[in-house]
Each structure stands twice: as structure tokens, then as C-alpha cells.
Amino acid sequence: MTAMTVPAPLTARRAPLPRLMRSELRMMLRRPRTLIGLGLLALVPVVAGIGIAIATDANSDEPMGQGLETLVAGNGLLLPVFALVVSLNMLLPLTGAMLAADALAGETAHGTLRNLLTAPVGRARLLAVKAFGVATVSLLATLLMAVTGTIAGILLLGGEGMLTSSGTQLPFLDGVGRVLLTVVLVTVQVWALAAVALAVSAWTEHPLIVVVVSLGLVIVSGVLSVIPALDWLDPVLITTSWQSVSDVVRDPLPTGSITEGLLRAACYIVIGYSLALSRILTRDG
């Protein structure tokens, strides 16, 4: 009998969450800029692979570049890891910020957010749908890069399995596991930046401001992290965990730094989404 007291009409008027998410995703993937962005990102590992293949053909004995780059030649499975780590410095955060800017500030600029706010969708649910869209497309971007990177790496650079920076040779499947782990770590870091960008996006009606603020955050964090007197600040900077992503090619896997990077990203995600939610809740229709 108590079940009858639930206000049935209200639940009926609410659109189901999965359907909202699907339509949001469809809308995002139909935007030309999203598609062009994804396509360009997918090309990054291919271009890097061609560059490295040509460079190593020219002089075979010289050590080239720094860090991961020295290991990529003749070590195809490392190419997607290398491309993802390099893109995490600027291209992927830029993508995350752009998606977050479109999600709320873009809608405000077009005057369409007003409709959404007055629609029979809870505001928390609206934010959840938007966050889902941003997160899924970022994941799609990194996955796409991993796929093109792996294919390009094997075709252009060859190599059996994966040579780790510790000098051990991982079997092919373990190598693919490391690539997937990189995808997860990089995606979570992009989510962290996108969460902050979404908070900015909820507060402004200019998508450009969102992108500028997010990239400003990345650049300022990068500058602060190289000042020795501010070393104590390092553990709270969003970019600190980005540098440790390349730890995935060490063997054995240093779990400590990897978990720390994930936790740091989670903190930023919580901060970003709670600020975004508070703004969405108070916003006038």
C-alpha cells in the first residue's frame, strides 16, 4: 500500500538516464569539431611513428632524444605509450577542456542551457549527463590513439613484445596490458582536468574562457613544478602525476607512484564536480 503513495506522475515525466546519456553522446559526436579533434589525435601516434622510423634509419647507432623516445625505435608497442604520454602534456588536456567548454558554457552561449534547466530533468542529473559525455569522449580519444599507435608501431617499428625502460622484454600480451594501463591512467588525468574545466564551464557563458582557464592551470602548474623553492607544492599540482605516467614502462611496475597519481586525479575530480554542481543548482533557469 505504501508503494501507492509514491508520486507516480513525477517519475513518469522523468526521462531515463541511459537515454539522456545516449542522446548527449550522439550530439557530441555529431559536432564536426569533436570529430576533427578525434581524427587529429588519432594521427599523432602515426606521425610520431613515421618520424621515429625515418630518424632511426638515418643513424642507427646514436642514442636519440630523451626518456621514452630512446626506447621507441624498433619497439613498436611502446609507440602508443609514448604518443599518449607526449599528448598528455598539451593536446589531451586541450581536448578535455574543449569538451567541457562545449558541455555547459557552449550551451549557455547558444541559449540552449536555459531549455535544459527548465526541462523535467533534475539538475544533478543534467550535470551527470554532461560529465558522462565529456568523460566518454575523452576515453574514446585515448583509446583511439592507443589503437592507431599500436597498429602504426607494429607496422612501422616492429619489435617483439615490449622492451621496458628497465631493460626487460615483456611478452606481447603483457605489452598490450601496459598500453591499456596507460590508456586508463592518461584518461583519468584528462578527466581530472576536464572536471575542473566543467566547473569553470558552469560559471561562465564564454567557452573560450573555459579553455583559457584550463590551459592556464596546466601552464601555471608546469611552471610552479620547476621552481626548486616550491618543491613542497609539487604533490598537490595537477601536472605532477602526468610526469609519472611514463612509469608504466618500468618493470616491475612501481604501483606506489601510479596509485598516487590516480588518487591525486580523483581529488581534482571531486573538487571540480562539486563546484560545478553547486553552480548548476543555484543557476536561474
Binding site: V236, E260, L263, C267, V270, I271, S274, L277, S278
Partner: peptide
Amino acid sequence: KRTALAVAAAGTATGVVGLVLIA
């Protein structure tokens, strides 16, 4: 408005405390 403030405060506090704990 009060809910929103509570959400913002709670979320930000959680995140900042987490960052400090990591640091």
C-alpha cells in the same frame, strides 16, 4: 542555495583534504 553551498563546501573540502594527505 543552501544545498548548493553545502555541496560545494563538502566536495571542495574532501578534495583538498585528499590532496593534503597525498602531500
